[in-house]
Design a protein around this nucleic acid. Sequence first.
DNA 1: ACTGGCTCCTGAGGGC
DNA 2: TGCCCTCAGGAGCCAG
Length: 271
Amino acid sequence: MPELPEVETTCRGIAPHLLGQTFQQVKVYQPRLRWAIPEDFAEIITGQVVHSVQRRAKYILIQLDTGYLILHLGMSGSVRIVPTDDPLKKHDHVSLQFSATHCLRYHDPRRFGCLLWATGEIMQHPLLSKLGIEPLHDEFTGEYLQQRATKRQIAVKTFIMSQAVVVGVGNIYASEALFLAKIHPQRPANQVSAAEYNELVRHIRSVLRAAIEQGGTTLRDFTNSEGKAGYFQQTLQVYGRAGQPCVHCGQPIMQQVITQRSSFFCKQCQQ
DNA sequence: ACTGGCTCCTGAGGGC
DNA sequence: TGCCCTCAGGAGCCAG
């Protein structure tokens, strides 16, 4: 499940390989991703030079001569740099050869991800234009969250996972950050105080930063790796720990579905 | 303007 | 060992 740190790590990992290279051959093995890859996709991409690789939310944007590849990893997607003759693995859906020896492989068992072609002003794209702010940017403050939460009665966990508010806070980190900030995940968003939102922002940032740093340790052998997440290695304090003792008070961690998503919290520490 | 529910898909894990 | 069932999950989309 790629969360923002993993997408960032992926971005940093593939950029040095791709920059300045030309896509020489593109093969689509399975076009049916979240949105189908159009039939003329390979034809459009072939011959184009990579000018930049950037991230917006959990989207990876690869700028070519006449437009952008928009890549999303969904929850089971990954890309890897492999030798051209590397045998296809199950669920390798697209192969983009960018040099005489190497290609970029898109792999996604559950096919919740997407690979799109877009032209024009990229940030005006329907998938990008309504996105909220980046959690690691300076504009992401407690004040911002509280202001956006005005009149919002949805659970605060759902609120911070809303892409229109702040991007890239997935289910795991939402639970973790709320635990660290001592806020009950089901509290209505408009009933969280300014001080609490400040704490929440601080913890969202720190948990994402720590995960990116850990992801960075796998960058060295990125070409061999699946981009396996750093965050699984880090100690999660509540996520996936239902019934186990809270690291602070020892009470069993609760699990509850909030807006269709499993949520983990300590009912003693989080009010 | 908000909100909740639905949807895509496969693999993991539990029960037997 | 293997089969069947259930569930998880990002996030766009739509109906109420």
